[in-house]
Nucleic acid binder design. Structure first.
Lengths: 255, 255
DNA sequence: CGTTCGATTGAGGAAGATCAATTAATGTGG
DNA sequence: CCACATTAATTGATCTTCCTCAATCGAACG
């Protein structure tokens, strides 16, 4: 696969030699460097996945961690009484499977929402490699740490932001994630239905739709000519401003 | 300090030799064993903290992890625009500080809500110890993994449960956490105000109060004769049943 | 013993859910 | 390729839950 153009959102599974040539995206540099280290040290098995593929399932015996080289994934939590909750979205450079370490079984589902490539890393061999290569351990811990910090941010968003702001913050974070990976953010493709977004943000699909309509009416986002899955974000800072505007009228909850 | 009675909720900082005598609480066994391993391997500096003490603050340079030997702690996330959100509650056996690994700075506040003892573990020396003692690494990863899994459960609760059920689930989880540590669960002391609980659960203090009143009216919980901070939980399963009742469609009377 | 803080409870209102109808995109078989 | 079926998205009208505001009460504390 040839890829000389600016990296697109679809995060092509580029060969290692191309990792250093991520165009003007110095933001994507760190991700690329880390992936390179992991690839060299672990020589992981590579696996191509497609939309809907289940990487692992809640209850399944834990054994592997997965590093995402490309594609887009969701983490779905399941409760005993049948509730389903999207609790995380994962991109290139993220890891999957940490939830399985403690209980020897995965505690949620990991599902591909797009074609992508994942690297399979048996946990035991990862530990062995970490002993030989301490920077690897640091990378692993950093990934887990980031996940913990981000999960907390998610909880804060759903607890403190009104619906409109939550949608704006969701788009802002998505764009930021893409930017960090050196991908385009002026036009992003939501690979989730309104229902999935609403589930993730703790609101109904109708509320998501209304929020997006308001964002479009305020010119904070735009819809591509065809299809409303493509969202244009001319200026990411406008999303942040919108969130603040939502918070401004009413002061913060709880002192 | 002598402690031959059944372990109370206050999780006394008992000497190592007493760890094996945790009464009938075989549930607290694993926590105790892990703490013993950590104590032996790391010989951490012990520090007594009191209500309101700040273990670390968002923005502070990361360096230490903290293992909780006793007491009760809250994790508070802060946003740039001044929102505050309680994103976690920590007990004996839990760790603090994982959020700081990735960015070299802590990303939230950790505050003691009770007198307690924490073990200070410099991250670098922990890594060194892990190389020499692989089980230690396993314990560390398990702690991080548990935190990730639990944060996801929190998000699911906030997103999918109505207010009353969220409060019931909160109490259930608290009781479960105490049980896992071999402490009493028939009468627990909430060390948070209604406002703090509400903040943690994404609702107002009035809603928390009303939910607790309803739980008491339904005899799912009871209030101690003195003070409404002590909650009696005669049967933890009644809390689970209450949650299910909240989720079930309108309970049709008769027929 | 008054002051303060936390908790409870009620009344009214607003954000968002639910229900419903319509339209737009996507997919399928002829 | 089109007609049709299916799924997703939008928008409006109502309804419910929970928030806001306010008053009262109890407990803790100097």
């Amino acid at each position: 696969m040839l890829n000389t153009a600016a990296p697109s959102q679809t995060a092509p599974a580029m060969p290692d030699v191309a990792l250093a040539t991520l165009g003007n995206a110095c933001a994507g540099r760190q991700t690329a460097d880390t992936l390179k280290l992991l690839c060299e040290q672990l020589r992981p098995q590579r696996r191509v996945v497609h939309t809907g593929d289940v990487i692992y399932q809640a209850g399944e015996r834990f054994g592997n961690l997965y590093i995402l080289n490309s594609g887009f994934f969701k983490i779905v939590n399941l409760s005993a009484d049948g509730r389903e909750q999207v609790v995380g979205l994962k991109f290139r450079g993220d890891w999957l499977g940490f939830d399985g370490i403690a209980g020897s079984r995965y505690s949620c589902d990991a599902v591909a929402m797009d074609t992508g490539e994942i690297w399979v890393v048996p946990y035991e061999s990862l530990l062995a490699a970490c002993v030989a290569c301490p920077p690897l351990l640091q990378v692993l811990h950093a990934a887990m740490s980031r996940e913990i910090a981000h999960d907390r941010d998610s909880l804060m968003s759903v607890c403190t932001l009104p619906a409109d702001a939550r949608v704006a913050e969701f788009l802002r974070h998505w764009a930021e994630s893409l930017a960090e990976r050196g991908m385009r953010t002026d036009e992003i493709t939501l690979r989730m239905t309104r229902a999935e977004i609403g589930n993730y943000l703790g609101m109904t699909l109708e509320s998501v739709s209304r929020a997006l309509s308001r964002l479009a009416r305020d010119k904070v986002i735009g819809f591509a000519t065809k299809g409303r899955r493509d969202v244009q974000i001319p200026d990411v800072r406008a999303l942040t401003a919108f969130v603040q505007r939502c918070l401004a009228p009413a002061p913060t909850m709880l002192q």
